[in-house]
Amino acid sequence: MDINKSSNDEYRQFTAFARIDGAIIGVMWVVSFFCFIGNLQMPMLGLAGMAIGIYSIILAAMRLRKFRDRILGGRISFGKATLYSIMTYFYATILMAVGQYVYFQFIDQGYMVNQTIAMLSMPETAKAVTEVYGMDPKQMIAILQATMGTIRPIEIAFQFLTLNVILGIIISVPVGALMRKQ
């Protein structure tokens, strides 16, 4: 009976720490997302957003190492380290999806599409679009307007959620391998 209680307590502790780390990483991702949006007006915010996004991956690994060393006595298997990392990114992804939903539902009001259209209307961007995609920029603008006009904010958030879950799983495998310690 004590064995089951012990493993149950360990699981609760495991998930609690993953939720806390996920909340920290999720807040970083939301800030990074808002930097991306701000990048449309102030290009330096794009660099800040990218730096925050990259640092969030490093911080997640550092938090896993801290959990391993302080809570688990310096030992964690590859599977547990990977699962912890996946759970952390899963919780971060949920927070990020909520942030994106709130943004697209209540704040954006077409801002992102309008900024993209303005950018596609500039001569140098129009030339690049024609060269890269082989498409007239006016056609691309029409497609963008038609597509973005039909996608609901919840669908946008769900698409990002799906992508972030997949990326979180992919990132978790090497992090789990690096953080495992027997």
Rank of each mutant, 00 (worst) to 15 (best):
M1K: 11
S6M: 13
I20K: 05
D21K: 05
I25W: 00
G26Y: 10
V27T: 14
W29A: 11
V31R: 07
F34C: 05
C35D: 02
P43E: 04
L45S: 07
G46V: 07
A48M: 13
G49F: 09
A51M: 13
G53K: 08
I54T: 04
S56W: 03
S56V: 03
L59R: 14
L59Y: 11
A60F: 01
F67D: 01
D69S: 05
I76R: 02
K80I: 03
S85I: 02
T88Q: 10
F90L: 15
F90W: 08
T93N: 01
I94V: 15
L95H: 06
A97T: 06
Q100R: 09
F106S: 06
D108K: 09
Q109R: 14
Y111G: 11
V113Q: 15
N114M: 09
M119A: 13
L120G: 02
P123I: 03
A126P: 05
A126E: 03
K127N: 10
V129L: 05
E131D: 12
V132K: 08
I141C: 00
I143C: 00
L144K: 04
R152P: 01
E155M: 12
Q159Y: 11
N164W: 10
N164S: 13
N164E: 09
V165Y: 07
I166M: 10
G168P: 08
I169A: 11
I171K: 04
S172R: 03
P174R: 05
G176W: 05
